[in-house]
């Protein structure tokens, strides 16, 4: 297993980091939550991007803001890779346009999972909301656990595998079964 420092992966896949933070910002805006500061990308060993936002009115908003990047990055990864996945996977095409699309799409897909910071914040709010019998909060526990697991599995390139799965495997599967 090859170990590459996170900052290098973030630099190579910087569009994914930018889209991840933009997704947090977008969902803050959709939920009417104040955004104080956004850093779309920075050269930092631990945090390559962040969004500082205000408090939310309910757990639903917190959940959406936290998992927003997962939804948006996954969707964009799929859409961007569509024009490249069929030529790449079915015909074995290796032209530069196909490679560029795959790089862009998979980079975005790789950064779909919320960070452990996002998951920790969400966990605290889920615990508080679950005590008030909030259904979404109760349902979200296994999802938050999955986010933690996904973050742990980054050491074995789970994020990259997810990007390849959404960007290459899923579109190819759909094309084959159309």
């Amino acid at each position: 297993m090859m170990f590459i420092p996170g900052i290098i992966i973030a630099v190579v896949t910087f569009p994914g980091v930018i889209i991840h933070e933009a997704a947090h910002q977008l969902f803050c805006r959709l939920c009417g939550v104040a955004v104080y500061e956004v850093k779309y990308f920075q050269f930092d060993l631990t945090t390559q991007g962040y969004v500082l936002h205000g408090g939310t009115k309910n757990f639903g908003e917190s959940f959406l803001i936290s998992v927003g990047p997962f939804l948006l990055n996954t969707l964009l990864c799929f859409l961007i890779c569509i024009p490249a996945s069929l030529p790449y996977q079915v015909f074995g095409d290796r032209n530069p346009v196909t490679y560029a699309l795959l790089w862009l799409g998979v980079s975005i897909g790789m950064h779909a999972f919320p960070s452990t910071g996002d998951a920790s914040g969400l966990w605290e709010q889920a615990v508080a909301s679950a005590k008030k019998l909030n259904i979404l909060a109760i349902i979200s526990f296994p999802i938050i656990v999955l986010i933690f697991v996904a973050n742990v599995l980054r050491v074995i390139w789970f994020d990259a595998l997810y990007g390849f799965f959404i960007g290459i495997i899923v579109p190819t599967f759909i094309f084959k079964h159309l």
Partner: peptide, 27 residues
Amino acid sequence: YRRPFPTWLTIAALLAIAFVIFGFWYN
């Protein structure tokens, strides 16, 4: 509350959309 996205990000997003359309045409 309505923090705008920076211009460079909007332009980059438009370029990405154009690139995907070009990708469809190219392939």
